[in-house]
Amino acid sequence: MEELRELAKKLLQEKQVNAVVGYECDRRGVRPAFVDDPAGCDRLVFDHRCVQNLPAYLSPRRTNVAGLGRLAVVVKQCDARAVAGLIRESQLKRENLVLIGVRCGGVAANPNESRELGAETLALRCYGCSGTETAMADYVVGEPKTVPAAGGDRDARLAEIEKMSPEERLALWKEWLSRCTRCHACRQVCPMCFCERCVAEKTQPNWIESSPHIQGNFSWNVTRALHLAGRCVDCGECERACPAQIPLGLLNRKLAKIMSARYGFAVTDDPSTPAPIGSYRLDDGQEFIL
């Protein structure tokens, strides 16, 4: 922790950056922190409650965060995938950013988790994670850590659903999606949902009905999942943020599996790996073209 605080202090004192985006403790657990003076660096923490994907604040649509100036951001290895995604899609220039890589021993599903990290509390995305720091980092802090062994198969819940008949699956998703009230928390917390104007906000024509009735909710949630195919960084923030308790991560996970099977693409923190949506290969499957 001291190492992180000292580094943040140094970056601010030497005016290498105007603000550091990291984590701090609050009344209930841990929340994102924006520190712009060296004295405030003592607020910074990093532990297993640091769940949030901070590169979400780097989206160009965050005009108030952009107004802070040059930023240093605390990133876990998985968070760096979002930075890589934003660079890959020309939303961010690597040189405009300082990345503080933290060695991470896994995080809980919930930033207010009061229990120790273990099979019961570990976030799904940490299942099978090696815990190594990102190669993108300018600085790496913290002692090497080991991610606890998870309680089971990361994709067990997806496998359950894949076994169902299409009718059963439809009934299940109808039940889940009927709870959606279109608060768009899924979109707002997503680092890859950076569009200045979302397709869901367009009215001429009205591509996606804004009413939270079942067809509007299918329209919205399926469109968002498809827009994230091969782009989702698998941080699970949409599912965590959903106040309607919809297991949105299942949609993204399924699409990630399809992208892997069809295009050999797996989400990575290497920004030079081309994304399937932005690249063309002669051996791309094309059997769907008549």
């Binding site: 924006f34 279109r182 608060c183 928390a185 917390v189």
Partner: peptide
């Protein structure tokens, strides 16, 4: 407001 994501979750609950 820096950390606010600008979604409607707070208002809808």
């Amino acid at each position: 407001a820096l950390r606010c994501h600008g979604c409607g979750a707070c208002a809808f609950v």
